[in-house]
Structure formats: structure tokens, C-alpha cells
Nucleic acid binder design. Sequence first.
DNA 1: ACCAAGGTACGAAAGATTTCGTACCTCAGT
DNA 2: ACTGAGGTACGAAATCTTTCGTACCTTGGT
Lengths: 111, 111
Amino acid sequence: MAGKHLVGPEADALDLGAVLRALADEHRRAVMTELAADRSDSERGCNSFDLPISKQTQTHHFRALREAGLIDEIDYGNRKGIRLRRADIERKFPGLLALLGAESPGDTAPR
Amino acid sequence: MAGKHLVGPEADALDLGAVLRALADEHRRAVMTELAADRSDSERGCNSFDLPISKQTQTHHFRALREAGLIDEIDYGNRKGIRLRRADIERKFPGLLALLGAESPGDTAPR
DNA sequence: ACCAAGGTACGAAAGATTTCGTACCTCAGT
DNA sequence: ACTGAGGTACGAAATCTTTCGTACCTTGGT
């Protein structure tokens, strides 16, 4: 029951185009924003995100995030764990994760 | 001959989703990478980028960049100028432009 | 006044993406 | 061994994007 790591790209092979395409989708970005906000980087269940889409579609999006190299997926057979690849992302694209939190409210400062 | 500024979103209204969708396209990202690399932020002609696509498609992409708030377009009637909105982008999404240069070669450092 | 170069508008074709229905798999608990 | 919860595979519909053809506009130079 150790859980099988599903494969994604190596840390060095992270591709900016693939990453940006992954982050361009609202649902995937919502997941990434939540993950980036949790500095403990603990593993999370896939259904701990409150996505308003069917489970088949969730499978599709989590796979897209994994194939972009943004998360690890751990397959336990009848459930799945998700973990942010923070170190790999920070090494290759420093500051990217911080941007995901930057669209919080309260940015309406007068210019 | 002053040139008319075509409208884009206000600096405060830059939206991360729109920005990431704009940057997800290879051609648009190539333009942005070139613009981000030139620290003088001088105005450039639209055909000074070596895009392997028709001019109608270029019109489409430059418009997408403007509507995302990433560039200003200045219409001179029979030609058009492009300028990076560096300050606005940096204020709202600090570090984003730096990421565009991060996919240069030479990142193959041993881990 | 004409023309050529650069650009846009509109519309259509081609290609990608997102979404979900149906069917099936895997494990935990009974 | 059965069931239920969580997840995947495959395929199809809907939607969105990218691309370009045709037609037209604007300016500068002849």
C-alpha cells in the first residue's frame, strides 16, 4: 500500500510552455493556488479541492498538472494523493508560485 | 502622426488568468520574451519579430497581448508600434517577466 | 491620383481543449 | 464474496483557439 508514483518530467526538463498552458486553466490554477498557499507541502487527497466538475474531468486536470511537472500523483489504487513539486518548480521558475497568490483581493490601492 | 493608443485594461485590472492564457501561446510568448529581454523598453514595429505566421494571425496575437494588458499598441494608420507594459506588469505580477528569460539554454546545470 | 506596404475585419477551416456518459478497475469494510 | 467510494479509459459533444483567404482601409511616396 506504499502507493505508486505516477511519472512526470524530470526537474531539469520542466518546460515553461507546458507549465503556462497548465496554469492557463481556471480549475487547474485554483488547485495550484491552494497548493502554493500551504507552506507545509503536505500530501492532499484529490477530492479535498472543491472543484465544480465531474470526477472524470478532475482526472483529466490532475493528469495535465502532473504532465506539466507541477505536481506528483501517488496512486493508492482506490484513492490518489497529490503533492506540489515546490522545490523543482522554484529551482526552474523562481517566483512562479508566489505569483499564484498575488491575485488575492486588496490590490485595489489607488495609483 | 501622433499615433493612437489602442485600449487595454488598466494597470490595476490586470488579470492573472488572462495573462497566463496570453503567455500560453508559443508565438505570443516569443514576442514577450524578446520584449522582456530589452531593458530599454523602446517601441518596436510589429514586424520586427520574426514570426512564421501570416499578418492576419499576427494581428490576432498582438491584440490578444494587448487585451491581456501585456503590451500597448500604437496605431499609426499604416503601421503599428508595440511597447511592453513593464511597470504595470511588474507592479501586479513581480517576477513574471524574469521567468520568460529563464528558459534560455545553459540551464543544464548538474543537480 | 495612383500604387505599394502595412494593417484590419470578417468568416471559415482546422485543431485543441474541456466536459461528461458509459463502462470498468481497485481497495476497504462488511 | 459483495458493496460502495474513489478513480481511470475511452469516446463523443461542445467549445475555444489558431490559422488563413478574401476584401478593405490608411499612409507615404511617386
